[in-house]
Design a protein around this nucleic acid. Structure first.
Lengths: 183, 183
DNA sequence: AAGTATCTATATCAGGTTGATATATATAAT
DNA sequence: ATTATATATATCAACCTGATATAGATACTT
């Protein structure tokens, strides 16, 4: 998916700054997709100069200006149109898998060359990480209003459920089978 | 993990050409990690000029030479040493998650802007892909000798089991809950 | 029998992305 | 008082990817 379409899509969920978009990629989206500042900021500037988003500068005393972007009608139309062609391209290409780089997996793959202590630490930290992530996906307590609206979105519900199930399964498998890597 | 360490690690499983390493990334490794030709070939050349791998040219009549690389003792030592520092860095960094770019996830996230037919096709193709992958991970029939040796590796058994469980869970969830995205 | 497509096999490179760094201030912790 | 962390935007070298070039073998199709 083009970075423009992705940024427009995120802005369609509500007005946000570049910094806040990055926070989404580092938080709830981190297990699915990510973009760096070096991509986000130029993309937003480009979208703005083509009138796909509008920008309100929130001047804060002696802090750098906070630029909050809002998607325009023109931007929403472009997003919908691009999304459709992206989906068509996804089908056409035949690449239905995800692009993944897993450091953890590589460490497991070559684990016979690692001391047992190191392998244990890697496993412990990974399981801890997965459990934290699971809690975040399952969390149903109070959150800021603008995020609460997202909770009711069908796609968000579906994704949270999928992520929870997968993380639970992953944790269970690792805890049950990690001993197999030693012995 | 450095590309050198990764290539050495794969060559530690048996001698291979650059093309064959790429095939591993497109096949069984595709859901965990990948490198492109533009990275693999220069890396192998670099490893060779530093004597971490040796190279045997298999001249085939009028086909381009096939360069089969074998890890050296020096290379194995470098690999083990790098692996240890990579594991330490994994712990130190605090980044226990994987780097993921999932086109499928983005299409689901923005699925309310997609026509139902398109969403159905995306879902059908994705489930089909997951089922094929699952079969590959579970497959226990005859395979070439050099691959059969890998089957007995503890790490491979662990990973195949993990992948099978996760794919099964993913397929089950999508089939049971995909209707929630419409309505 | 000729033509098309796909597979093996290596190599290079433009273009795009990342990860690091720079800048500036506020706040929390030590 | 100092250090570390968080907010906030921007830029850029270094690196990686995806595309393209080359070249012959094999498979299939009309």
């Amino acid at each position: 998916m083009q970075k423009e379409t992705l940024c427009l899509g995120l802005l369609s969920l509500g007005p946000r700054s570049g910094y806040e978009i990055k926070q989404m990629f580092e938080g709830p989206l981190s297990d699915f997709y990510s973009l760096s500042f070096g991509t986000i900021y130029p993309t937003l500037n480009n979208l703005q100069s083509n009138k796909y988003v509008s920008c309100k500068q929130h001047t804060q005393s002696k802090k750098p200006d906070k630029k909050v972007y809002t998607i325009t009608k023109k931007g929403l139309e472009l997003m919908k149109s691009n999304l459709l062609s992206d989906a068509a391209e996804y089908i056409r290409s035949g690449n239905f898998g995800d692009q993944i780089k897993s450091e953890f997996f590589l460490l497991i793959l070559f684990s016979k060359y690692l001391p047992n202590e190191m392998l244990d630490t890697v496993m412990n930290e990974r399981v801890l990480y997965l459990k934290q992530k699971l809690e975040q996906f399952k969390y149903d307590g109070p959150i800021p209003d603008e995020l609460a609206a997202l909770r009711n979105e069908k796609s968000i519900k579906f994704i949270r459920g999928l992520a929870s199930t997968l993380f639970e399964t992953g944790i269970g498998y690792v805890e049950k089978n990690r001993h197999l890597l030693k012995e």
